[in-house]
Nucleic acid binder design. Structure first.
Length: 276
DNA sequence: ACTGTTACCTGATTGC
DNA sequence: TGCAATCAGGTAACAG
């Protein structure tokens, strides 16, 4: 479930174990994922030290000694498996990176909507996939006015606008529904029509929803690694996503529970009584 | 220019 | 039980 909180958790797990380690080998099992993989990855990466990690939207950026960054997107079904030792290859294991300390990092992605690219660190923000991303919702300088200005340009529903990575980076289908529930805003409202009060509520709700999910990811198991080595996947108690009963007004007269509607090809969940 | 739809893939779940 | 239909958390090409 790789939206911003999951990607952040994965990134932190990688950073804790691989920062400062040297890459020993890289092996690609196929030439492409969503797009062609960079060619000659092994010879371009082998022997180089991993200097650090960061996240931008749903992308993980691994900074390497020598001035390049590996940019990883998990798509819809991508996982990163980080273990010490030499386990058998998993199904759909498309890339394996070995690093000092006995670490083996595997990129596993059945649907292959994920992507991996290698670019100069100095220009990583200009990568075509990153250049047009909207603001980071958890950055200190993200403000209600920033959100308001971006929403004002969109005649779509607020739900569709939140899924647009150019509006705010990192929100996916689950957290869009969750944030709108927290803000008590109907997903069917027109984005540009939100008044200052709703924008303020949505701003706070986005941050709280994402921050809570990251905290849940960090606390739900030690050091972010599950027994099988999968990084960053955790059970989270969604308020409305995939649910039928409204957690806030379950027995109130006139509350018919959580409703699902398809918007812009994705399912939205909301409580019509509470969200206006 | 903007917006909604469709396609990309495979696997899990649902329904007959 | 078996098999087909449906749906899935993301992104971008495409059509209107």
């Amino acid at each position: 479930m790789p939206e911003l909180p999951e990607v952040e958790t994965v990134m932190r797990g990688l950073a804790a174990r691989l920062t400062g380690r040297r890459i020993l080998s890289v092996r690609a099992a196929r030439p492409d994922l969503r797009w062609p993989l960079p060619s000659h990855l092994d010879e371009r990466l082998r022997g180089r030290c991993i200097e650090g990690f960061r996240r931008r939207g749903k992308y993980i950026l691994m900074r390497l000694e020598g001035g390049d960054s590996l940019i990883v997107h998990l798509g819809m079904s991508g996982r990163l498996l980080l273990v010490q030792g030499s386990p058998d290859a998993a199904r759909h294991e498309h890339l394996v990176l070995r690093a000092e300390g006995g670490w083996r990092l595997a990129f596993i992605d059945p649907r292959r909507f994920g992507s991996i690219d290698l670019v100069p660190t100095a220009g990583e923000e200009q990568h075509p996939r990153l250049a047009y991303l909207g603001p980071e919702p958890l950055a200190p300088d993200f403000a209600p006015a920033t959100l308001a200005a971006r929403l004002a340009r969109h005649r779509t529903t607020i739900k569709a606008a939140l899924l647009d990575q150019k509006v705010v980076a990192g929100i996916g289908n689950i957290y869009a529904s969750e944030a709108l529930f927290r803000a008590r805003i109907s997903p069917r409202r027109v984005a540009a029509g939100l008044g200052p009060a709703r924008v303020a509520r949505l701003f706070a709700a986005i941050r709280e929803t994402l921050a809570d999910a990251i905290a849940a990811g960090g606390s739900s198991f030690s050091d972010y690694v599950q027994p099988d080595g999968t990084l960053g996947y955790f059970q989270h108690a969604w308020q409305v996503y995939g649910r039928e009963r409204c957690p806030a007004c379950p027995r109130t007269p006139h509350c018919r529970g959580i409703v699902s509607v398809v918007q812009a090809g994705r399912t939205s969940f909301y409580c019509p009584r509470l969200q206006r």
